[in-house]
């Protein structure tokens, strides 16, 4: 796997704390996140998540190459996109599904860039942003995970995805964390030291 992309809206802070908080600092891929937020929000979300996550959490910058073990949040009032060479980019194009950042914009461009190397995760939220993007991820051969609507604070985003596609799994947050570790083949065993040539 080359990357994980997460989309979330209403109820997102708690969901991200739980999900990202359950992942280790050595998580083997970058994690790209679109959380819907008001246009003038500061980068407070990154600060909050950094205090509860072993992963490094930051706001995405244009042109940066995403690194493993790092969470990149879409900045308020910008779409977050992935270029075909895997670098991140930003835009102020019109809102999509009434949202900027929009989950569909991240998912669709990440699907183009990473293809089978992408895991898309759609969490709690009102509205239907992310459904089409998740379907694109699936069409390009990537894996798709949806938070169990029964657990979600707002169930319409997960439900609208389930109406559009059959994802690889529908799980509560705790299950999503372990499935992500499984899919990205994170090993909890320490890797053996390479033997020195004699």
């Amino acid at each position: 796997m080359r990357a994980v992309a997460i989309g979330v809206s209403l109820g997102g802070l708690e969901a991200l704390r739980t999900l990202l908080g359950a992942l280790p600092a050595a998580f083997p891929t970058p994690i790209l996140v679109v959380q819907h937020m008001a246009p003038e929000s500061s980068d407070g979300l990154a600060m909050i998540l950094n205090t509860v996550c072993a992963l490094h959490v930051k706001e995405a910058d244009a042109d940066e190459t995403p690194q493993p073990g790092t969470v990149y949040l879409a900045p308020a009032n910008y779409h977050l996109l992935v270029e075909t060479d895997g670098r991140l980019s930003l835009s102020v194009d019109p809102p999509v599904n009434y949202a900027r950042p929009s989950v569909d914009v991240l998912f669709e461009t990440a699907a183009e860039a990473f293809g089978v190397g992408l895991v898309g995760v759609l969490l709690t939220g009102a509205g239907s942003d992310g459904s089409r993007g998740l379907r694109t991820i699936q069409q390009r051969g990537g894996r798709t995970l949806v938070q169990d609507p029964l657990e979600a604070v707002a169930d319409s985003m997960p439900r609208s995805a389930l109406a559009l596609l059959k994802p690889d799994a529908v799980l509560p947050l705790s299950g999503l964390a372990s499935r992500l570790l499984q899919l990205t083949q994170y090993s909890t065993h320490s890797t053996p030291r390479p033997t020195r040539p004699a």
Binding site: A62, H79, L81, V82, E83, T84, S89, S91, D93, V105, E108, T109, E112, A113
Partner: peptide, 8 residues
């Protein structure tokens, strides 16, 4: 940058 250009 191609991602936005492609969308447009």
């Amino acid at each position: 940058a191609e991602a936005s250009l492609h969308r447009r």
